[in-house]
Structures are given as C-alpha cells and as structure tokens.
C-alpha cells in the first residue's frame, strides 16, 4: 500500500499534459466556445471533430493566446500544471513553438514567402533550442530527412513557392518538431492537400508521433482522417463538447444524436449504397443559441427535457455524452 503510494509520488510526470477547464471564448457578444472541459494525456493522439463554427479551432487558438484582442477568453488552460490563460507574453512566446507546436491547414501561407525554408527551420532551432548556426544547420537537415523531404540538402535552400503544398506541410512539421514539443496541434493539416498527399502526411504524423512520443491534437472536419490517426475522439457542436470516447467506441457505438447524424450523413466507399440521411436544418447562429441543448432544433429525438442544458456524463467506460436522452436511448434494445 505504502509502496504503491511511493510509486505514485515517484511518477514525477502526471499523465495529464493539458487540462482545459470551463473555457469560454466570446467575440463581442457572439459566443464561440461555451464552457469546454478537456484533458489531453501525455503521448496520446486526440481527435477533435465538428463542423465549421463549432469552436474546435478557436479552443486551441485561445489556449495558446493566439486570438485577436477582440476575443474574451475565460476559464483555465494548464500545460503540465502551468496556467496559460493570462500568462505573460514572454512565457507564451517560449511555450509556443517550444512545448506546444501548431500547424495549420494552408502550409504555404503559414511559411514566410521571402525566406528560404531551411532558414525558417534554423531560426526555430536557434530560438527554442539555443543552437548555434552550425548545429542548427545540421539539425535542420536531420529534421528534413525525418519528415521525408527528398533531396533535403538542396531543398533547404528553396523558397516556399518552389515547393508543392505537400512538401510545404512537411516543412511546417519539421519546424514544429524543431522545438521538441510535448504536444503538436494540427488544425486541418491535410484539408488543402490531394488525397494521395494527404495519405503521405497522415502517415508522417503517425510516424513522428510514435518516434518522439509527443501528444497530438488533430482538429478536423473529416471523421475518416481522425479515425485513422487518433485513439480518442471528441465531437464538438456549437461551442461545446457533446461526445468523447475511444475512437473505435465512438464510431461503432455513437450515443449523441449529433454524432449519429454525422455518421449517417457521410457516404462510404464500400458496402451497399444507401440514400444519405442529412441532419435537418443548420447550425444555430452564435447570436441566437437555443437555451438548453444547442442541437435540439435539429434533433430527431427532441423532448421537453432538452430545454435544460445537458452535462457531459460518463455513460459507458470512458465514453462521455452530453445528451439527456442518451441513457434512455442506450438502455432501449
């Protein structure tokens, strides 16, 4: 007994890397994130899915202090115990690109067009790892090889416009890895890429995550992309988490009507062809959120009790759902 307690104390690194509590983000009077709780464990690949405007990107931009001053951010975001919200700009500057790296949908516009790609990666290495020029040059080449840029010795001297979109995304990943991050946030990293290039980048993300042991947050509208890469998946709707579970569990046994709706609306590449089942209506405007469950106006199973705000509850092991009807639906044969 006392030994196990000692063991627990000896484990100096707690398993939770990022803890988001009660995050609220508002632009003027328009809410974007409306009370979000989320835990990211060390080394896990977590997928966040949802449609445009659900707050899946804003959550992480807010956590990293990357939103414009017009946004109000409340709540708490802790990275290994350190509070990020309201942290000094200098603190955030060392964390961003250091312990937390982020890559975006459009790699070509994320890179500086007037600097060679190698220079940009070397700059990250000098900033976050304090390397001198010679060491940074060698490390940049190693990173270019790691992310699978062929002919890296020549490519480090090219400009972003001389590389394809897929190659630029590899450069972005190399730059993200330069700070040896604990977590990489990938916001729609393959949405702008062609299918065969998307497959290359997904394989690369999987490889670097395995080799570096960093955690990965994959934000995507594409359920398939998330299913391929992530162990755990959260589904967001209108600024809230509505369902969170192990990926296999979520896709095989979705419990929230919105998750079920998303899966029914999606055509598949195999199996019998069936008529798609759309979700009726559209996402509520941020300024006109219904009281209670935001999905209620579109929900095929709405009831009177849906006018109360549903809390995210654990209805099956590690399977959290924010729907007052879900337990009843689940109990039904």
């Amino acid at each position: 007994m006392s030994a196990s307690l000692a063991d627990r104390k000896a484990a100096s690194t707690p398993p939770d890397l990022v803890e988001i509590r009660d995050l609220v983000v508002t632009f003027g009077d328009q809410p974007a994130v409306r009370g979000l709780d989320l835990t990211l464990r060390r080394g896990e690949a977590l997928g966040i899915v949802g449609e445009s405007g659900c707050g899946k990107s804003v959550t992480w931009l807010a956590a990293l202090g990357l939103l414009p001053p017009t946004a109000t951010v409340e709540g708490s975001v802790r990275l290994a115990g350190q509070e990020l919200l309201g942290a000094a700009p200098a603190t955030l500057d060392t964390l961003r690109g250091g312990r937390i790296a982020i890559i975006f949908q459009d790699p070509t516009s994320s890179l500086n067009p007037v600097h060679r790609v190698g220079t940009q990666v070397r700059e990250a290495l000098r900033l976050h790892r304090g390397m001198d020029h010679r060491a940074a040059a060698a490390e940049a080449l190693r990173l270019f090889d790691l992310v699978g840029i062929p002919d890296s010795r020549r490519r480090v001297d090219l400009y972003p416009h001389e590389l394809s979109g897929g190659q630029n995304q590899r450069v972005m990943i190399a730059m993200a890895l330069a700070g040896q991050p604990d977590v990489l946030i990938a916001d729609e990293p393959t949405t702008a890429l062609d299918a065969t290039i998307q497959a290359q980048i997904l394989e690369l993300l999987q490889k670097v995550q395995r080799e570096t042991g960093m955690a990965l947050v994959l934000i995507s509208h594409d359920l398939g992309v998330v299913a391929e890469l992530c162990q755990r998946v959260g589904v967001m709707y209108a600024g809230r988490m509505v369902e969170m579970a192990e990926a296999s569990q979520l896709f095989a046994h979705p419990l929230h009507p919105y998750t079920k709706g998303l899966l029914a609306a999606l055509p598949d590449l195999s199996g019998p062809r069936r008529r798609l089942v759309p979700i009726q209506g559209s996402v509520p405007e941020p300024g006109a959120m219904p009281a209670g469950c935001a999905f209620m106006p579109r929900c095929p199973d709405q009831q009177r009790q849906c006018t109360a705000l549903p809390a995210l509850r654990e209805l099956a092991p590690a399977h959290h759902v924010a729907c007052v009807r879900a337990p009843i639906m689940r109990a039904a044969p």
Binding site: P150, I197, A199, L269
Partner: peptide
C-alpha cells in the same frame, strides 16, 4: 488502387494503405 486506398475511412481497412511517393 492508390487513390482508393488513400481515402481515410471510419471503418477499419482490411488491406494496408498504399502510400505513393512523390507529388503528382
């Protein structure tokens, strides 16, 4: 073959993914 196998799917794939080298 490569194009079809590159499509991410929520159902477990039965065959390994073919990842093409290079860009179009």
């Amino acid at each position: 073959k490569a194009l079809v196998s590159a499509i991410p799917s929520i159902t477990r794939r039965s065959t390994p993914r073919i990842v093409l080298d290079g860009d179009p």
